[in-house]
Amino acid sequence: MQNNIAINVEHLSKTFNNQKVVDDVSFTVKKGEVFGLLGPNGAGKTTILRMITTLLKPTTGNITIFDHDIKKDSKLARSTFGVTGQYAAVDEDITAKENLLIFSRLNGLSKKEAQIRTKELLKEFSLEKSADKSIKEFSGGMRRRLDLAISLITRPEIIFLDEPTTGLDPRTRTQMWDTIRNLVKHGSTVFLTTQYLEEADTLADRIAVIDHGKLIRIGTPDKLKHEIGESKMSLKIIKNIDILPAAKILQNALNSKPQIINNTITTRFKTTEQIIDGLSQLSTDKINVSNLTIQEPSLDDVFMALTIGKN
C-alpha cells in the first residue's frame, strides 16, 4: 500500500423515506490522522459513520477503506477497523472479562491469545477491579471504556468513535482524550464524530463540518478558525468624550464597524498591522486606553457561522 489514504468517501448520499439525510458527501481520511466529523444534532454524523463501517447501505456513492471497496470486500474492510458506536454496545448480562474474551475469540484470537489480550486491556483501561462484575453494575464511564477496549482488541488500523465522550464527566473525558492520542501515537487512524468544539479542536488534525447532511467545510481547526471566525480586539477608553473619535479611528484602521458598550469598544480585525496602525493613531491623538484584549477566533464561531441545526 503505497498511498497514504485510509478512507476514501466519494459522493456519499443516504435517503430515508424520501428524505435526504446525507447529501453528496466526499472526503478522504489520511493514514495516522485524527479526523473529526463535527455537526449539530441530526446533521447525519452517525449515518455517515454507519455507512463507512458497513452497517448501513449507502443510497449512492463509493467508499474504500485501505483500497478495499466496502461493497465488494466488506469482510476484508471490516478486518481493518474497530467501531465504538454512539451508545455503548456491550453485553449487559455478562461480565467485562467475558465480554472481552468473547470478542477476542470472534476477532480470530486463539483461546490463549484471547486470555492474554483480555488481561492487557483490562489493565490498560483500569477495569481490573470490575473485571468480574456484571455490566449492569457499571457506570456510564466504565461502559464507554469497556466499549472502546472491545474495539481495540485487534489493535485495528482504523478506529471509529461515535461521540466518544458524550455523557462523560470532565476527568473521564480527559482520560478518553489521552487514550485516543495514545492510539494515534501507535500509528492508528482515528475517525470520530463529536458535537463538542473543544474536543474537535484539541483532538482532530482535520475537521469536516456537516449540517443537514451536507459537507460544509473541511480543513485543519486553525484553517477553519481563520477562514470563518474572526479575531476581535477590544479596549476601554478612559475619557468619555474620546469614545466616538476613537471608534471612528478604529473603524478606519481595522476596516470594520466597532461595537460600543459603555466605555468598551470591540472591533473585528484581520491582520496585526491593522491593530498597530489603529493603536498608534489613538496614541497620536492622545486618547488614553486601558484593558486591551485580543480574542482569537474559536471553533464556536465556526460552528455558529456554518451550521443551523435542526431547530
Partner: peptide, 13 residues
C-alpha cells in the same frame, strides 16, 4: 435493541 448485533456485524465473521 441493545446494539450488540451492530457490533457483531462489524466483525469479520
Amino acid at each position: 435493541e441493545t446494539g450488540i448485533f451492530d457490533r457483531f456485524k462489524t466483525l469479520p465473521i
